[in-house]
Each structure stands twice: as C-alpha cells, then as structure tokens.
Design a protein around this nucleic acid. Structure first.
Lengths: 214, 214
DNA sequence: ATTGTAAATGGACGATCGTCCATTTAAGCA
DNA sequence: TGCTTAAATGGACGATCGTCCATTTACAAT
C-alpha cells in the first residue's frame, strides 16, 4: 500500500477536504433529488449546488456543464435500477416461471417502484425524445432483461407455436409493467403493489394455464 | 340573424382582424406544436408567439400567463383524444368483444398514436406530478373509457369469477396500451401498430379463448 | 364623422438562467 | 518550510426568461 492510498476517500477527514469523487457523487445525488422533488424544469444550477452544498463552479469543473450532469444523473439512476434488479434476482434460478415472476415482483417492489423513482423516470422520459443521451437510458428495459424474459417464455412454450410468440408475450409483459409504473405515477395513493402483481399473474396464467397460479 | 353575427369569425376578413377566439386557438396550437417539436422546457413565450404569429402581450391578455396557457393546451390536447376516440367508436356497438377491440384499435391508430401525440403526452406526463392542473389531463384514460371496457369485460365474464376480475383485466388492458405508447416513444421506427394490436389480442384471447381470435 | 370599447401591440422591466474564470484553499512533495 | 498542483470557490457576465402596461389599432355604435 503506497502513500497514495491515504487518499481523501479514506474516512480520516470528517467532511471537508479534497475529494473530487465525493463532489461528483454529491452533485449527481442532488440533481436526482431535485428532479424528484421539483421537476426537471425547476432543477437549476443554483438549486443543485445548494442541495449538494458545493460551490457554483463545480458543475462546470466536474461535468463540463449542466447538460452533461443531467446525462450522468440519468446514467446513474438507470444503473441503480439494474443493480437493485440483479440483487433481487440473485437467489432465483429455478425455472422460467420463477424467473419471470421474480422479475415482475422486483420491478414492482418498493425498492424499484416508488414515488421518487417514478417521478424521476417520467421526468427523464419527458425530455428523452430531444436528448439522445438521456433517451438511451430511458429505454423500455434493456436488452439483457428483455432477453432473460424472452428466453424464459421460449422455454415455457417449448417447441409449439411460432417463433414470434415468445417475442410478443415478452413485449406484452414489459408493456404491462410500464403501464403499472404509469398508473403509480398518476394514482400514487390508490396504487396497490399486490394488485399489480396479481394482474400480471392473471394475464400470464391465462397464457400458460397452471404455470402462474395466483 | 342580427348584425352581431357579422362577427370576425365569418369568412369576410381574409386574415387580419379582431378575433379573440382565433388568437386563443392560434396560441394553443402553437404551444402544442412547440412542445411536440422542442419539448416543454424550450417552449418559451417568445417561441410560442413566434409560431402563432401574434404579439407578446397576447398570452397574458387571453390566458393570464404562460402557466394557464399550458394548462389550456393540455386540456385541448386531452379533449382531442376523446373526440377522435368517439369518432372511431361511433359505428361499433355489436358486443363486448367488438367494443374492446375497437377501443384498442383506436388507441393504437395513427390518428391517436403518432410521433406528435406521444411526444406531447409524455412531455405533459413529465411535469404532471408537480402541476395538478395538468395532472388531471394526464390521467390514464378517463373514467368513461375505463367504464366502457370494464362493462364489456363484465359481460364477457358473465357471472363466473370474482367481482374484481373484470376490474383487474380492465386495468391490465389499459396498462398494456400505456406500455405500447411508451414503446412507440422510445422506438418510433421499430414500432409496429399491427404487432401492438396482435399482442393485446394474444393476451385477451388467452383470457377469453375463442373471443379474440387473432 | 365622432366616440367608445376592446383587441392587439411591442418594448421595458427585474429576475433568473448557465457559463466561465480569476482567485483562494488544501494536500503532496522536495 | 516553501513549492507545485489540482480542487474548490463565488462573483461577474451576457442571454433569456415571463410579466406587465402604456400605447396603438380596428371595429361598432352614436
């Protein structure tokens, strides 16, 4: 261990000290918090630095501008979704049915679907069409997750049916989940996680009788 | 017909003349057009009046401020959805199956689901959570549409099953449609209207065998 | 023709936006 | 203890935001 490892990331200094990594993290977190609470249009440089407790020049210094910071915030937020999704999927690997339901339950779990996340998610969606960098992170679930679900449905279908059926059901299932997120956004009080899981289960049980019993 | 009917709304004057109604309409249309093309954050007073071809003071004069104009634009946009939906639903009244599929086809039709509408819809969604007035128009389909679908599913279920089943399937169907809109937003080029209708049909056919044959 | 009324104009205004940079501060090295 | 380097500061800057109002314009009634 060289002297260099006695860097500011160690817990020696209580708070104030040189730590560019910490500054970056503070800014990203403050940005996401501001978007969640005040919306993206009211997420200004002044508000971000106030929440982060840093000086005005930090955004330009560490990110090169407000837009780049927003992009990094979107990336971080998207990354956090998959990290938590993987965490909840860690213990499950029994079969296609369990895999699919594990993904569904995780996507609708309190850790992933809550007022904060749904607010941030839809805020980014609103500006995604004109900001390709953000659009990339606003995609309807990524290829890996889609692949996992599609493979599971393929296994469930065995060899019967067309090749496109599994793709259709995959897209339908993802669309169902998307719709649940939107419902949470528009009716945060009336929303029921249990009902949401039950509804998805109903559709899948109808599709594969006996496999997704409620 | 009194003299008053020779108002500016008549086609006497070619373009310039007093017509507060026309000014209001121009401003609302310009607002929606700007949101569709530039996003809500770049929809400024300057841009709106430029597109509308009116003077700066008009927004404050006719709407009392930019926020009120945005709210009116959201109302108008939402209203247009239901007007077109009703138009497409006008000829259908055969049975529950036809009613449901007519709503699905209409919701996914080019008139209702297109790049412009999906951009505006998601832009409003993005700011809805902090703007109650706009949130009201961003609701996931209104009570009337939901009621029509729910009644149809009730009829399809006849007397079997719990009372909540129809509600569940209704919410699932609406969620599916919401998800399709989101997919159109994130993948406008890859999206297929035909595939979207087919996927919804698959799920409903699984739920009610023989009723929603593809 | 004159007057009254309301629509329409467009510039002034203060506030706030994001960017940038001269300066200060703190940590590592000689 | 100086010296170097990079992190951090915070105010200045021009641009642009939305609001507002004194003024002009156009139409209807007198």
């Amino acid at each position: 261990m060289t002297d260099k490892d006695r860097s500011p990331s160690g817990k020696s200094g209580p708070s104030s000290g040189r730590d560019p990594e910490r500054s970056r993290r503070l800014l990203i977190e403050a940005t996401l918090e501001s978007i969640a609470r005040k919306g993206i249009s009211e997420t200004t440089v002044s508000r971000i630095i106030e929440h982060a407790g840093v000086s005005r020049g930090m955004i330009h210094l560490h990110f090169g501008g407000k837009d780049k910071l927003l992009e990094e915030a979107a990336r971080t937020f998207c990354e956090a979704y998959y990290i938590e999704m993987d965490r909840q999927l860690a213990g499950v690997s029994d079969g296609p049915t369990e895999t699919i339901m594990a993904i569904v339950r995780a996507d609708l779990s309190e850790e992933l679907l809550n007022e904060r996340s749904v607010a941030i998610w839809h805020a980014f969606r609103g500006v995604a069409r004109l900001n390709p960098a953000i659009a990339h992170y606003s995609d309807t679930r990524d290829a890996r997750l889609r692949g996992m679900i599609c493979d599971a449905f393929h296994a469930l279908l065995e060899s019967e049916g067309d090749a496109g059926v599994a793709d259709d059901i995959t897209m339908g299932t993802l669309a169902l989940l998307e719709g649940m997120w939107t419902d949470f956004l528009t009716h945060p009080d009336a929303f029921s996680r249990q009902a949401a899981v039950r509804i998805v289960s109903r559709f899948l049980e109808a599709m594969f009788p006996g496999r997704f019993r409620i």
